[in-house]
C-alpha cells in the first residue's frame, strides 16, 4: 500500500505536484494517468524518497521510504530514466543492487530469467535495445520480490510484443496480491491494464476511481442534432424537459436524450432535421475532457454542466502532450496559466 497525503512539490514558483492525497491498494493494477508534465514522475520520485516533498507526506506500508532498511524488499521501481551504467554488465548491475539490500546472489539469475535476459547477463547494457533496457529495469524492480511495484511509463517506446509482455506481467503481479502502481499518459493503454485509476493534471488530483466506474460515468452518450432552425428546436427540447447545449459547429447536443424520442419531437413540431445521431464518447475523450481543464494551453471552456465534449472524432488519440482541443469560435482562449491560478 502506498499512501499519499497532501503531497506537494514546488519548483521555484511552479507547483509540480499540488496537494495530492490518495491511496494505492494491493491486489489491483492502479493506473496513474495524466498528460505529460502533470507531475507523475515527480510524484513517483517523492514516493522513493529521491525528491523531498515541499509539503505533505508519502508512506510505504505505513513507513517513510527513508525508514526502510531494505527498501528493495518492500518496493521495486522502474523509473522513466532507466538509470543503468552502460558499461556495467547486466549481471553486475543487478548484483550491486541486490548486495546493498542483502538479497542473495542467486536471485540475480532468477530475475534475469524472469525477464528473459539470461542470454545477455554478461553483456554491457550500452548495446541493449530499448526493450531490453526496459526489461533490465523491471528485473531490478523484481529483485527483492517486493509487495509493491511502481512503473513509470513502462511501455514508452516498446514494440507490440514488449507492450503485451509488460501488460501481462503487471496483471499477474496484481493477481498475486501485490500493489501495482503504473503511470501513463495514454488512456487507451490504461484501459487495458488498470482496474483502478488515479488521474492528475497540473499536479492536482482530478479523479480517483475504479476503471469500471470511470467508464460508466464518462462514456455516456449524447445525441447530436443539426437543424436549420436551432432556436425552435432548442425550445421544443427544453419544453420536453431536455437540456440541449450548443456545440462548436452550431449543432445541438442533448445529453442523456434518446435519438428516437428527439426525432419524434421534431416531427411533431414540424422542425426539419439535417442530422440526428447518437454520439458515444471514447475513454480517450473522457480523459481529455477531464484533463483539458488543467492543461497549460487551455483553449476552450467546458459547458456549464460539464457535459460539452471537445470536438474530436470519436476514438481519436489525444494530441501529443495532451494538448487541449482546437479553440471554438467566439471564445477567446484564456491567458496562459489563468485557469491554473484560479485553482480550478
Amino acid at each position: 500500500m502506498i499512501e499519499l497525503e497532501d503531497l506537494t512539490k514546488r519548483y521555484g514558483d511552479k507547483l509540480a505536484v499540488d496537494g495530492l492525497s490518495f491511496t494505492v491498494r494491493p491486489g489491483t493494477v492502479t493506473g496513474f494517468l495524466g498528460p505529460n508534465g502533470a507531475g507523475k514522475s515527480t510524484t513517483m520520485r517523492m514516493v522513493l524518497g529521491l525528491d523531498a516533498p515541499t509539503r505533505g507526506d508519502v508512506r510505504i506500508e505505513g513507513k517513510h521510504y527513508g525508514e526502510l532498511r531494505e527498501p528493495l524488499n518492500s518496493i521495486g521501481a522502474l523509473l522513466e530514466a532507466k538509470g543503468v551504467h552502460g558499461g556495467r554488465r547486466a549481471y553486475d548491475h543487478l548484483l550491486c543492487l541486490a548486495q546493498s539490500n542483502g538479497i542473495p546472489e542467486r536471485r540475480v539469475g532468477e530475475v534475469l530469467e524472469m525477464v528473459g535476459l539470461q542470454e545477455v547477463a554478461r553483456k554491457r547494457p550500452k548495446g541493449f535495445s530499448l526493450g531490453m533496457g526496459q526489461r533490465l529495469g523491471i528485473a531490478a524492480a523484481l529483485l527483492g520480490d517486493p509487495r509493491i511495484l511502481m512503473f513509470d511509463e513502462p511501455v514508452n517506446g516498446l514494440d507490440p510484443e514488449g507492450i503485451h509482455w509488460i501488460r501481462n506481467l503487471m496483471q499477474q503481479l496484481a493477481r498475486e496480491g501485490r500493489t501495482v502502481f503504473v503511470s501513463s499518459h495514454l488512456m487507451s493503454e490504461m484501459a487495458q491494464t488498470a482496474e483502478h485509476l488515479v488521474v492528475i493534471g497540473q499536479g492536482k488530483l482530478l479523479a480517483d476511481t475504479s476503471m469500471s466506474q470511470f467508464i460508466a460515468e464518462n462514456s455516456r452518450t449524447h445525441v447530436r442534432v443539426r437543424t436549420p432552425e436551432p432556436e425552435r428546436m432548442r425550445d421544443v427540447l427544453v419544453e420536453a424537459g431536455l437540456r440541449p447545449v450548443t456545440g462548436g459547429d452550431g449543432a445541438l447536443e442533448v445529453d442523456g436524450g434518446e435519438a428516437p424520442r428527439i426525432g419524434e419531437l421534431a416531427a411533431a413540431n414540424g422542425v426539419v432535421l439535417h442530422e440526428l445521431s447518437t454520439q458515444r464518447a471514447s475513454l480517450e475523450e473522457a480523459f481529455m475532457r477531464l484533463t483539458a481543464q488543467s492543461v497549460e494551453y487551455h483553449a476552450y471552456a467546458p459547458g456549464a454542466d460539464g457535459t460539452q465534449l471537445p470536438q474530436t472524432p470519436p476514438g481519436a488519440a489525444p494530441p501529443p502532450g495532451g494538448a487541449a482541443p482546437p479553440p471554438q469560435p467566439g471564445q477567446a482562449p484564456p491567458a496562459w496559466g489563468e485557469d491554473w491560478k484560479r485553482g480550478r
Partner: peptide
Amino acid sequence: SAEYSTGMIRNSLAAVPQ
C-alpha cells in the same frame, strides 16, 4: 559522476535511502 550521468544514482538511492 557516472552515478549522475547514467541516472544510476536514482537506483542507488532507492536501494540505499540512507
